[in-house]
């Protein structure tokens, strides 16, 4: 499932998750790049036996201005989000939306094929599908 239920029945699992999130919040994450929460764009990462799926929630961006690169097993998403400047006489009451340049980096698993990447932008979400290498896919071995 993509989404975590807020009130799962398994309370112990939820406490475990809470503890993990606390550790991440205090930068005790084992990943050298940590897990930046609250960054733009927000990212969800998932996987199937055939592919790795990355969803970047980047609304209102010209897809042509997005720069997606894979180098040495690291995926970088960079770009700029320009918001219209409010007119001089206007009053800004709430200003919460992200504006400016952004860059986010994700370490990819070892078994992905950097040449089989597909990126699509729809409803403000950039979806990047990276296929796993053929040799890494599960195979059923027939017994003779």
């Amino acid at each position: 499932m993509m989404y975590r239920s807020l009130f799962p029945r398994d309370v112990l699992a939820e406490l475990d998750r809470l503890q993990r999130e606390m550790q991440q919040a205090f930068h005790l994450s084992p990943s050298i790049r940590g897990i930046a929460r609250g960054g733009f764009p927000a990212m969800n990462v998932g996987g199937t036996p055939q592919s790795v799926e990355i969803y970047a929630f980047a609304p209102g961006i010209d897809p042509a201005s997005l720069d997606v690169q894979i180098e040495k097993g690291v995926l970088t998403i960079a770009g700029e989000r320009k918001l219209p400047e409010p007119a001089e006489q206007a009053t800004v009451h709430i200003d919460e939306r992200f504006a400016g340049r952004f860059r986010r980096v994700v370490t990819l698993p070892d078994d992905v094929d950097a040449n089989a990447v597909e990126a699509r932008y729809r409803d403000g979400v950039l979806r990047i599908s990276i296929a796993r290498k053929q040799s890494a896919q599960p195979r059923r071995i027939t017994i003779q």
Partner: peptide
């Protein structure tokens, strides 16, 4: 979102639908 069948999330910042 278009989610392939059998996908398991490993990291989710957008955690509610």
């Amino acid at each position: 979102l278009d989610v392939p069948a059998g996908m398991e999330a490993s990291h989710a910042e957008v955690s509610l639908p």
